[in-house]
Amino acid sequence: KAKLLVLLYAFVATDADTICIGYHANNSTDTVDTILEKNVAVTHSVNLLEDSHNGKLCKLKGIAPLQLGKCNITGWLLGNPECDSLLPARSWSYIVETPNSENGACYPGDLIDYEELREQLSSVSSLERFEIFPKESSWPNHTFNGVTVSCSHRGKSSFYRNLLWLTKKGDSYPKLTNSYVNNKGKEVLVLWGVHHPSSSDEQQSLYSNGNAYVSVASSNYNRRFTPEIAARPKVRDQHGRMNYYWTLLEPGDTIIFEATGNLIAPWYAFALSRGFESGIITSNASMHECNTKCQTPQGAINSNLPFQNIHPVTIGECPKYVRSTKLRMVTGLRNIPSIQYRGLFGAIAGFIEGGWTGMIDGWYGYHHQNEQGSGYAADQKSTQNAINGITNKVNSVIEKMNTQFTAVGKEFNNLEKRMENLNKKVDDGFLDIWTYNAELLVLLENERTLDFHDLNVKNLYEKVKSQLKNNAKEIGNGCFEFYHKCDNECMESVRNGTYDYPKYSEESKLNR
């Protein structure tokens, strides 16, 4: 008799109507990190870190770059004969040098303040090359056809396309004075040089004057150069050297050249137009028929994500570079809930034993079982409120962090190594801060989002509990077992918050 009662009780308990509160689960393989956990499985997430590029040089917003090819900045601007293909260059979106560009200054020497000139050019998007001192009329008392084997072109001695090597005419090199007034309405880049012979005999042979000088002056520039005559090792078949100089001439300003020898005179100059998204990159990537809004030396990035880990040097509207390998923000729920887990921000989770793959029309909802059958029903209101809140948060985070910009490298010469090392340390410090901030932001927001979901499920549970009161009992896994019969209409009233407690209280009292 006792065995019969136990079996009867078990049958009745199993047959009781139930309603459970749960949440969506799926077959997603997404994982995120939080402050407290690593690799948390979630139903949905968004990636904030771009880690792919196309490996190509592309047009930037429809404008092609200027590819210097086998030449570098120095060779292009001075007019190395091997860089003749660059003479027609007028406009570009950015400038590309190759790491091993070999054609710079063909006659050995240095372009002074080269690093600063590169910085200036990094904001130039177009130029006009014009004859600042016409070759045939500007130097009537001097020979202007100086050439050298060091600047050979097609097997013949030649010289820079933008400079003139002035030497004596006959047996004399009379003092020369020439000036140019900038009437271009924009900055003009003027380049010139000073020749330093290897011996007094060479000085006399070329310029006749043993104590020659070169003077260059404008409103913002004033220097006097004296040739340094000295024996030097042979470089590119030359014992002599040429140093090259430049200045930016403001609109309306005048530049005056005065010399008694050794002047490498300007022939062509450049009127410059600035462009905020221009820059110089060093890259071996090849040019393709493609378009982008962000270019790196590795390749083009076409992404609206706020961060990238491809390269710190970028041109155009680019994500911020960070050292992170993963920045994924959760938008959905835990896919593998932890039992009795309390989140960092106070939300209680884990009283549900598992997510439901059968509930596909919402994030949170119900599963019921009664004599009429069983089924899932999503709670659309709480789901939609959660979707709206999380979507707004993700968009806000992306908008705040998605300050796209150009980031170019800084140039230092060989004598500025300590400054370069200090600059690298400062840049590394800023990069570490950006990386830390980005990672911390994602970790915190992921923790908040998961706790937010847990709290929403808990609130749904409490909503049902407050309606049923003692007409049902909690069975410990997020479910309630009714003390009365609850048909589909009754189940719907529980879900929509209109459950009639008094209607079922007498039946429940008897069954309790």
Rank of each mutant, 00 (worst) to 15 (best):
A212K: 13
D253A: 15
S198E: 14
V188T: 08
A271T: 15
V194H: 00
S28K: 12
V124I: 15
K135F: 15
H195P: 02
L48C: 09
F225L: 11
G193T: 00
V32C: 05
N39G: 12
A10R: 06
P65L: 02
I112E: 04
K186D: 02
A212L: 02
W165H: 03
D201Q: 08
A25N: 12
D201S: 11
V147M: 11
Q203H: 12
S85F: 11
G22T: 01
K175M: 13
L191T: 06
G104S: 13
I132M: 15
G240L: 02
I21P: 00
G261P: 07
N162Y: 05
H142M: 05
L48T: 06
N54V: 06
L7K: 04
L121G: 00
L248F: 08
L68K: 02
N141W: 09
L77C: 01
T177Q: 01
P233W: 06
L248M: 15
V12C: 09
G261V: 02
I255G: 01
K38L: 04
I280N: 04
L127A: 15
G275N: 15
T148K: 07
K1R: 10
W192M: 08
Q238C: 03
N183T: 14
T29M: 09
A2F: 13
L36T: 15
P108N: 02
Q204S: 08
Y160D: 05
S91I: 13
F270T: 04
S179I: 10
P81V: 03
V147L: 01
Y94N: 02
T260N: 14
S219Q: 11
T177R: 06
E258T: 04
T31F: 01
S152C: 00
D253T: 02
G55R: 11
A16I: 11
V124G: 04
S158I: 00
E116M: 11
I63C: 08
F270W: 15
L191W: 06
Y207A: 01
F133I: 05
D84A: 07
G146R: 10
S45L: 13
L249F: 00
F159I: 04
P99G: 14
F257D: 00
N162Q: 07
E250I: 09
C106G: 01
Y180M: 09
S150T: 13
H196D: 15
F11W: 12
N100R: 12
E128Y: 12
L66A: 01
N209R: 13
D201C: 00
L163N: 03
S200E: 09
K59G: 02
L248A: 02
L176K: 00
D51V: 12
S138E: 02
L60M: 12
L163M: 15
A2G: 01
S215A: 14
D113S: 14
G210V: 04
S152L: 13
D201Y: 04
E50G: 01
V124A: 14
N182Q: 03
L127Y: 11
Y245N: 00
I280S: 04
E250P: 12
T74K: 10
R154F: 06
G62N: 14
F130T: 07
L121P: 01
L117K: 05
E119R: 10
K135G: 12
H153D: 10
G104Q: 03
Y107G: 07
V188R: 03
D253E: 15
V188W: 03
Y221E: 05
S199H: 10
V6Y: 12
H153V: 12
K175L: 14
E202A: 12
P266F: 11
K38Q: 04
A269D: 01
V40I: 15
N209Q: 10
I281D: 09
V42P: 08
T29H: 13
V149N: 06
P81W: 02
A217Q: 05
Q204E: 15
Y107Q: 02
N72D: 14
G79K: 04
P81I: 04
S205D: 12
S278F: 05
E277G: 13
A64T: 10
E102C: 00
E202D: 08
I63W: 01
N47A: 00
S138I: 08
T74I: 15
R118T: 13
G170K: 04
Y207E: 05
R224G: 09
L127H: 10
L127E: 01
T14E: 09
K1S: 12
E228S: 13
C58T: 03
P233M: 10
V46I: 14
P197I: 08
K169L: 09
F144L: 03
R118Q: 05
E82H: 06
S85N: 10
S152A: 10
S219E: 00
A105E: 14
H44V: 01
S101C: 10
G104N: 06
Q67L: 13
R236C: 00
F257H: 04
D237W: 06
V12W: 05
P233R: 13
I281P: 00
H44W: 09
G55D: 11
L206R: 00
Y160M: 03
P81R: 07
N262D: 06
V32I: 15
L176M: 00
N141Y: 07
H142Y: 15
R274F: 11
S278Q: 10
S45G: 03
E97K: 03
Q203A: 14
G261M: 06
F130S: 01
I112K: 12
N183G: 09
S125V: 11
E82G: 14
A41L: 01
L8C: 13
E97M: 07
A25F: 02
L86W: 04
H196I: 12
S126F: 13
L87C: 00
N100K: 08
I95H: 06
P65C: 09
D113R: 02
D171R: 01
I63E: 09
S138V: 12
C20A: 05
T18S: 13
F159A: 10
M242N: 10
K61G: 12
E116I: 08
S52E: 15
C106M: 14
L7F: 15
L111F: 13
R129T: 08
L77M: 14
L164G: 11
D113I: 00
S200M: 09
A105K: 00
F11Y: 05
C20R: 04
K175R: 07
I95T: 08
D84C: 08
D51W: 08
S91V: 07
T18C: 00
A41D: 07
T148A: 00
Y245R: 00
D237I: 05
Y9G: 01
T14P: 14
F225A: 02
Y173E: 08
S278W: 07
Y221M: 14
E131R: 05
L249W: 03
D84N: 04
D30R: 02
Y244G: 04
T31S: 12
V147S: 14
H44F: 14
E277H: 13
L272H: 00
L86S: 07
R224D: 05
I256Y: 10
S126P: 00
I35Y: 12
S208W: 00
S101N: 05
C106P: 02
T148S: 15
K156I: 13
P108Y: 04
L121R: 01
R118C: 06
N103K: 11
K56L: 12
S126W: 01
N54C: 03
L60S: 01
K186S: 12
L121Q: 06
D51Y: 05
R224Q: 12
T254W: 07
R232V: 03
T43D: 12
P174M: 14
V190L: 15
S200H: 15
S219H: 12
V96L: 09
K59H: 14
P65T: 02
R90G: 07
Q238G: 01
D253N: 03
S122G: 15
K184A: 12
V235C: 05
R90M: 10
A25C: 14
E277R: 12
K1H: 07
G210S: 08
I73D: 00
G210M: 07
T74L: 14
L176H: 03
A64N: 13
